[in-house]
Write a protein that binds this DNA or RNA. Structure first.
Lengths: 339, 339
DNA sequence: TTGTAAGCGTTATCAA
DNA sequence: TTGATAACGCTTACAA
């Protein structure tokens, strides 16, 4: 096992193959105008030496690098990991690598932290998750830094080249319409945090469905959490103490829905017999709690893959789709309203 | 908003400040032998221009870079994310960035994939999670490539400079001893996948506790999963159909424990009244399912932070602790054995 | 089709 | 305490 012997460079390859470095460079970069014999000779030497081009030297000469960043401040761990997997799907087989960076959206230094991150590594591009992606200043910053970016959003935040968008509002409308079809008349809403576009869109979807059915959303039927289990647990208590009690709750994400489920159990309310609960996200937790959660499957992984594609090929970004449909998944946490 | 104007280089700073680039370089690198006046003059120009040193050029000149990789093939999403957070904790304020890379441990190309990853980005160091970390060839590979590494493990896999280790066996022994103290005599085990050192250590911990109490583990009281919810769900069915039925199960991780909980519910077995369940990991899911899971808190985040520290300062790696204690967390999924 | 020379932005060497 | 010059490993002109 050889230890720390200096790695071969393009010069070593050139010398041993008896060609110039430029020729080796051409081999590496698959230049079309190359004699087959020369190419094979050089490739043989490359293989023999185990030569791998130095990415930093390449980056310097090309005045660009092959690093793509993921910027997020997402309270939901599973979301973040699915995003990473989706991005890496797209980057597999390319020379790109994924650099991750959680940020604190509430910090006054948010923007300067992001600036620092992008500048320090001279990132080629970044994918940004909500709610940071909803910040217009962020987009300006990327343009200023000459860094490609794609934003994830629940609405038309940007042009197609810089956006992957999901149809949250519509998907929620369908889900709530389903609840109404089950005979539910008192449908409460456990919303996401104020300032999250996704929270707003999901709330609007619910309101639209209620309005279309001639139902309303009383004050006591509305509560807010911040997308975490604990906040869902807190908010659901208020909701379930209301009189008359709602027969169904649409919760803005699965993790809060799991919290609501806990509350119901503690209060002796049977789900779905006495209360239907619908979540949003379809994180693994949705299928693993009891009863398995009816929810909306958010195609975050596909969105992340598409975003990475746009970042790898910014020139083609505008042609690739930016729109993704969520899918309603019916499991066991919903049932017809008790009569 | 300026767009794509070329970024200032060290030459610009030198020219404007009226010094040589080497002097600017000295300022950047906090060289002690520098006139205060000179330093301040240069710093002013740097601030004015918004100059940020090009990391690729630095990497080339220094013949090293500031990228640390995370290599994992971990079925548990939360574990991976906690690890990332722990590493980033340690890297905060440094010039290091975190590059992530999931691998497929079953692939015949595992080692060559890892080699490719390390070589392609010329990583400075990597942190590797089980079970890949248990592979001796991997350590050899890193040495061959001259890449620093730290392995995470449930046993003494390597020397202290290259390891962060948790005391799984001991922690499980304590947990199972607690079950025995509650009066349980028929304790089953839902083990992790064969070939995982963590699975082995946890199983041994259980066996040691049983032996110490004069209990045994019948064939029917042992099943295996692969650390996923689904596999736990499958394996628990076999365990709970055994006659006589166990009164407690120690499950090798939380996610499988959640699966076991599902089975119990479907079979009408009350937890913890008729069956106690103990998990391992203390992932968020443990607190969010019903009943909240008694489990062992694995200090993965602290371990990751320590690992990143070792990678950032390999020269001090051996002096920093490599040993971490797990902690038993009693929640509501355990109760005295029914008499 | 291949080679030469120059340059990318930084740090190291060594002299002043 | 500073600066000139030569690396670092690669690519892009531009020639040959």
């Amino acid at each position: 096992m050889a230890v720390k012997e200096p790695k071969p460079t393009i010069n070593d390859v050139a010398r041993i193959a008896g060609v110039s470095k430029k020729t080796v460079s051409r081999v590496i970069n698959n230049s079309p105008l190359l004699n087959t014999a020369t190419r094979e000779k050089v490739e043989a030497v490359i293989a023999e030496l185990g030569y791998v081009p130095n990415p930093q030297a390449r980056a310097l000469a090309l005045r660009r690098n092959f690093l793509i960043g993921l910027i997020h401040d997402n309270p939901n761990a599973q979301t973040v990991l699915s995003v990473q997997e989706g991005m890496l799907d797209a980057m597999k087989g390319t020379e790109f690598a994924l650099v991750v960076r959680p940020v604190d959206r509430k910090s006054p230094r948010l923007l300067s932290d992001i600036r620092h991150f992008i500048e320090q590594q001279r990132l080629y591009g970044v994918y940004v998750l909500p709610p940071v992606s909803e910040n217009e200043d962020f987009a300006c910053l990327c343009k200023e830094l000459g860094c490609h970016y794609v934003r994830m959003g629940s609405a038309r935040l940007d042009d197609e080249a810089h956006l992957v968008e999901s149809n949250d509002r519509e998907a929620v409308r369908d889900a709530v319409t389903y609840l109404i079809g089950l005979g539910h008349q008192r449908i409460a809403h456990l919303a996401g945090p104020a300032g999250f576009r996704s929270a707003y869109e999901r709330e609007q979807g619910l309101r639209e469905a209620l309005t279309a059915a001639g139902l309303d959303l009383p004050e006591a039927g509305f509560a807010r959490g911040n997308y975490t289990f604990e906040s869902g647990y807190q908010a659901a208590q208020a909701l379930l103490r209301a009189e008359p009690r709602p027969t169904a709750i649409f919760v803005a994400n699965d993790e809060m829905a799991a919290g609501a489920l806990h509350v119901a159990r503690e209060m002796g309310i049977d789900v779905p017999q006495d209360l239907s609960i619908v979540g949003f996200d379809d994180t693994p937790i949705a299928a693993h709690i009891w009863p398995p959660l009816t929810t909306v499957r958010w195609p975050i992984r596909a969105m992340a893959k598409a975003a990475a594609h746009k970042l790898i090929r910014p020139d083609q970004a505008a042609e690739q789709t930016a729109f993704f449909r969520s899918e309603f998944v019916i499991r066991a946490s919903t049932a017809p309203a008790a009569s």
